[in-house]
Amino acid sequence: MDNKKVKNIVKTLNEKVPNLFKFNGEVAKQLFLHDEFNLNDKVDISVERKFLGEVLKYIPKENRTVLHDTVQASSEYSELNFENISHVEIFDDEKLIMTIIVYDVEDEEWMFRWNHNIRLPEKNIYFHSIKWDVDYIKPEIVLMYELLDPIDYHQLPNYRSVIDSLSYYQFVILRLVVGDERINQALISEKKAI
């Protein structure tokens, strides 16, 4: 599937606000595993809350934008409390083409959405691909959200290959946040999906 609209959105974001977002989800995992930059499917990006409005300015008006907070979803910005927005979905007609995952930073520390006691220096939550000149969220953080988040990522799981590629330090961080049981459940469900 060729996803021309999402490629155009990414191109615009890379030209206008390249330092305000980082690739997440499957794109980040493929950058980490294979240094591949595949935009043919749905694309997930992460944006610090204070830059969300700036990034959303570059989403074409013909795309339907749905903001989600902890209790509701709406295309009307005024209906939601900006401080509670967790993610934004971008649609091309009825097809979900992009999810923007919002994160918070306090005193230059990234805070995990479900437990603000889990913090990392913001500059330590992403890698930079020299080949593609893009930033992407580190795989252990991508997995924290995928393993604990109710957002449906609409992609085949590849937990085993990502987990096997983590450094010991990355695995320990993932394990501390999500726990052995959730990691094992994910690996079992992935085996069943294949």
Score class of each variant (00 low, 15 high):
Glu89Gly: 03
Gly179Ile: 10
Arg113Val: 15
Lys138Tyr: 04
Ser165Cys: 03
Ile130Gly: 07
Asn115Leu: 13
Phe51Pro: 00
Gln30Trp: 05
Val142Ser: 02
Phe127Leu: 14
Tyr169Val: 07
Asn81Thr: 10
Ile137Ala: 01
Val172Thr: 12
Asp152Thr: 08
Ala186Ser: 05
Leu166Val: 06
Val55Ser: 03
Met111Gly: 15
Gln170Phe: 01
Met98Ser: 01
Lys42Asp: 05
Asn40Ala: 15
Asp152Asn: 13
Trp110Asn: 08
Glu26Thr: 08
Thr99Ile: 14
Glu109Asp: 14
Tyr58His: 14
His116Gly: 10
Lys123Tyr: 09
Arg160Phe: 06
Leu39Asp: 00
Ser161Val: 05
Arg113Ser: 15
Leu148Lys: 13
Tyr103Lys: 04
Glu54Tyr: 06
Val43Arg: 01
Leu120His: 15
Val172Ile: 13
Glu122Gly: 12
Ile118Cys: 13
Lys123Phe: 05
Glu76Ile: 15
Arg64Asn: 03
Leu20Thr: 09
Asn40Trp: 05
Glu122Gln: 15
Gln185Phe: 05
Leu174Tyr: 08
Leu31Met: 01
Pro121Met: 14
Lys138Met: 12
Pro157Ala: 10
Glu26Phe: 07
Thr99His: 02
Pro60Arg: 09
Asp107Met: 07
Leu56Lys: 03
Trp132Cys: 08
Glu140Phe: 08
Gln185Trp: 02
Ile45Ala: 06
Gln185Asp: 04
Phe51Trp: 07
Leu39Met: 03
Asn84Asp: 08
Leu80Ile: 15
Asn115Val: 07
Tyr168Trp: 02
Ser75Arg: 10
Glu62Pro: 07
Val10Asn: 06
Val71Cys: 05
Asn117Gly: 14
Lys95Tyr: 04
Glu106Tyr: 13
Leu13Arg: 01
Ile173Ala: 14
Lys192Arg: 08
Ile183Val: 15
Tyr159Asp: 02
Lys192Glu: 14
Leu148Ser: 13
Glu62Asp: 11
Arg49Phe: 07
Gly25Thr: 01
Ser46His: 09
Ile118Phe: 12
Ser78Asn: 13
Leu174Asn: 08
Lys4Ser: 12
Phe51Cys: 04
Val66Arg: 04
Ile130Asp: 12
Lys123Met: 12
Arg64Trp: 04
Ile9Met: 08
Leu174Glu: 11
Lys191Ala: 10
Asp135Val: 03
Glu190Lys: 02
Arg119Glu: 05
Glu76Pro: 01
Val162Met: 03
Ala28Lys: 03
His154Arg: 11
Val6Glu: 00
Phe82Gln: 09
Ile194Ala: 04
Gln30Leu: 06
Arg119Met: 14
Lys123Cys: 04
Pro121His: 15
Arg175Thr: 06
Arg49Val: 11
Asp44Met: 08
Val142Asp: 02
Phe23Gly: 06
Val134Pro: 00
